[in-house]
Amino acid sequence: MSEERKVPKRGISTYCFYPQLGVNMDLEDIFMHMQDMGATGLEILADGIIPGYPYPSEEWLNKWFGLIKKYDIVPVEYGHWVESRLYPGQREASLEESLEQLIRDIKLAHYLGFTCMRTKLGVISETLDPVSNWREIIHEALPYAEAFNVVMQPEIHAPTKLTDRMVNDYVEFIEKENTKYFGFNIDFGVFQNKPVPEMARFFREDRVSKPEDIIPLLPYVHCCHAKYYNMSADFEETTIPYREVIQIMIEHGWDGYLLSEYEGPHKEDINHCIEQVRRHHVFMKKILGQ
């Protein structure tokens, strides 16, 4: 049998429709769009998607498993937060308070069928450096991540660069712990090299990562946010050098999930959001050779 060409797989994050959820869309609607596009990898943001979070009802869980089966959905990434400023006056949560949140989410993510987690840690600086005790928190949680087979992944998100010290600290930690259960989700927004029409003021020329910067990190990346800000009428993402990044991923045999995440304008317009995500997947199918 010819060696199956390892190519990244397509999916989407419920983040693409968050202003619509509970207004004129529900989770099943998103699953149907995913099936329409053949993009069955799923990211949810647990707090907002799971009614009763962090204690979903039996009834909702049954419905969840039914929908996953009905629409052939592959749960990929469970987005959650380890809050560090939990109540007034608190600057950094204790190890116990952090672990209580993290371990509970590891178990729930596993039970729902996810293999990755987008673990958002609290920050203590303008440049988004994580809380000072992040190493103890993750270290103590690793045995649970292993037992429940989920990978904890902070998100590397603009304006952080792939070559920043913070990313290097993460790699150092992974090597020291010699663990497969901590890594990171690279958000393609780090490669953005052109401003977004109507949102130019957020673009920071000085914080752009080059596509090749991803190479040394690929072993630690289990899924990515395929960020898109603006899909043109001829199905091109006009602000991010997608082709270069994906070419590198294919060359290095990376075949995890690319989860579409829209952060362009007009998120309150449901038809705009639907059209943008469909254009994004026509574009991704083209460059993935599907």
């Binding site: 983040y15 943001l45 647990a46 707090d47 937060w81 809050e83 400023r85 939990l86 109540y87 007034p88």
Partner: peptide, 10 residues
Amino acid sequence: VAYRGPWLSQ
């Protein structure tokens, strides 16, 4: 109008 709500104390 967001993707998550806060804990009450937040």
